[in-house]
Nucleic acid binder design. Sequence first.
DNA 1: TTCCCGATTTACT
DNA 2: GTAAATCGGGAAA
Length: 200
Amino acid sequence: MPKLPREFYQQEDVVSVAKQLLGKMLFTNIEGVLTGGIITETEAYDGVVDKACHAYGGRNTNRTVTMFLAGGVTYVYLCYGIHHLLNVVSGKEGNPQAVLIRAIEPTLGIETMLLRRKMEKLAPRITAGPGALSQALGIGKQLNAKSLSADEIWIEEFTNYQETEIVATTRIGVAYAEEHALWPFRFYVKGNKFVSKPNS
DNA sequence: TTCCCGATTTACT
DNA sequence: GTAAATCGGGAAA
């Protein structure tokens, strides 16, 4: 399937991008080893007006500068000193919006993922959760600010879900963002097992 | 330079 | 259900 075009990432509405990313295929090519799967869970971070966003209020630093790039690149950073989290930067240059990829359903390179996760057999938790996902795909800071049009990490067309198949709810781990923590910016595929929190 | 804390996961009670 | 692990970024001084 073809890679998503640059225009896809540069849509103005990050919430729309987050929803459309569900059902797309995410791949990484780490030193020639391919792994990938179907995106099942995302979260939107809406730039300067979103207290949960690292670039809230226009904060532009060595880390967050990546989010100000034009849509279509990765934003990877370390959280809790342990976990790498993968985001897709969206919107126009200067507008620091991003979509956190929280979970995928593995389809390619499952053996490699099992090795990286030190697991013996396939279970949803292998890629359910942003830290786990990054580990399974071999994502680290070396993949920060990479173009999604190149051949190290990219996203391909696959499926489009209807609104009725998508669940919108509150984001996770952002209680510090006060009232913005209540924004329904987390999206996942209804009924899918590869989601970072118990399904309903 | 110092101090505080986080877009989490995992192990253990 | 609860807690520990662990380190870089951001803000203050």
